[in-house]
């Protein structure tokens, strides 16, 4: 039995890796090309969304100029054309902020419950409930909100407007407190809880068990451990989860349309009846206002698209840079 054993000394001529050649079967090349093409198609799709909205919406800017962003109203027919998204943008931001103020604490508490507190057997059920909350159609949220939530909440709104009116945003000019930006934000806040909760839960669940046990072994209570270990670890993920929820809140349409009574008046009094959002503007005025009206709405859609895209991209950038985000996809 001849065994060739040859050891090569380190002093030999520098080794170089062999050149690389592709010998894939034709079938595999087609397969890879097809999959890659499909992947790239999503890039094209996103690009097309921006492009089409821009092309179709641009004529409205041509008419209104940059006053589109400083005008409130939707008058596109007749001699005096007066249309823009100022009040809508304002309302959109207010609704989103109220929604975040309401939704974030509940969502983070829910995520903490799911990762740190829930008994093993309850956990899958609760996770299913959170997922279900995300799947309930927004029109049903709207229906529920207008018949069940609003009648019970106007009491709080009224009380705040009477007793907290020294805080400017809680002041009201008219005593009517239903159909307000606040209540719309409340509903949207409930709707974004599942999104924020599921992303945050995912981040919290990646906390290294060693760090948690280290804190507990030092005698920390569970809440102290969460405050010192879980929350700092998940901070990046929480921030991006909140931004993701904000993106969702900015774009929410149907529930807002159902609750909010449209008014183009920009008012700091969020408890007061009336307001508008960009999504509401588009949904309500669609089909009105002739060709120019359509173009204006498409441009408003582009604005909404750009804002939410920017927020979502920022959210994914934050989460991928944070310590907890390494294994998380938003």
């Amino acid at each position: 039995m001849a065994i060739a054993t040859e050891t090569v000394g380190p002093g030999r001529a520098p080794l170089t890796p062999a050149t690389i050649r592709n010998d894939r079967r034709k079938g595999d090349r087609v397969f890879r090309g097809f999959a890659r093409g499909t992947g790239y198609a999503t890039l094209v799709l996103l690009f097309l969304i921006g492009l089409f909205l821009f092309i179709e919406g641009w004529p409205a800017i041509h008419v209104a100029g940059w006053h589109f962003f400083t005008t409130s109203g939707f008058q596109t027919i007749g001699k005096t054309k007066h249309f823009g998204v100022e009040a809508s943008l304002y309302g959109t931001v207010v609704v989103a902020l109220v929604a975040l103020a309401v939704g974030t604490p509940v969502a983070i508490a829910t995520a903490l419950f799911l990762t740190e507190y829930a008994p093993r057997r309850l956990r899958p059920f609760m996770i299913a409930v959170v997922d279900l909350a995300a799947a309930i159609p927004s029109v049903i949220y709207g229906l529920w909100a207008i018949y069940e939530l609003q009648p019970n909440v106007v009491g709080i709104s009224g009380w705040m407007s009477r007793h907290l009116s020294w805080i400017p945003i809680f002041k009201v000019a008219t005593p009517q407190v239903n159909a307000s930006l606040f209540i719309a934000g409340l509903v949207v806040g409930i709707m974004i809880v599942p999104i924020i909760a599921s992303v945050t839960r995912e981040v919290f669940s990646l906390t290294p068990p060693g760090e948690k046990e280290g804190a507990l072994a030092l005698g920390a209570t569970r809440s102290a451990m969460i405050r010192r270990v879980v929350l700092p670890f998940g901070r990046g993920g929480m921030i991006s989860a909140v931004m993701l929820g904000m993106g969702r809140a900015l774009g929410e349409t149907i529930a807002v349309v159902i609750i909010l009574s449209e008014s183009f008046f920009i008012s700091p009094h969020i408890l007061q009846s009336g307001g508008t959002t960009v999504a509401q503007l588009i949904a309500v005025h669609f089909g009105q206002g002739g060709r120019l009206g359509t173009q204006a709405l498409l441009f408003a859609g582009l604005v909404l698209f750009a804002v939410t895209l920017a927020i979502n991209l920022a959210a994914s950038a934050i989460v991928s840079r944070s310590r907890s985000g390494a294994g998380v996809d938003l």
């Binding site: 060739a4 054993t5 380190p10």
Partner: peptide, 16 residues
């Protein structure tokens, strides 16, 4: 010979 990410891990192995 074999490399991982440019690092030589196996050198001049001849074996029947």
């Amino acid at each position: 010979c074999a490399w991982f990410s440019g690092r030589l891990v196996l050198e001049g192995v001849t074996l029947a």
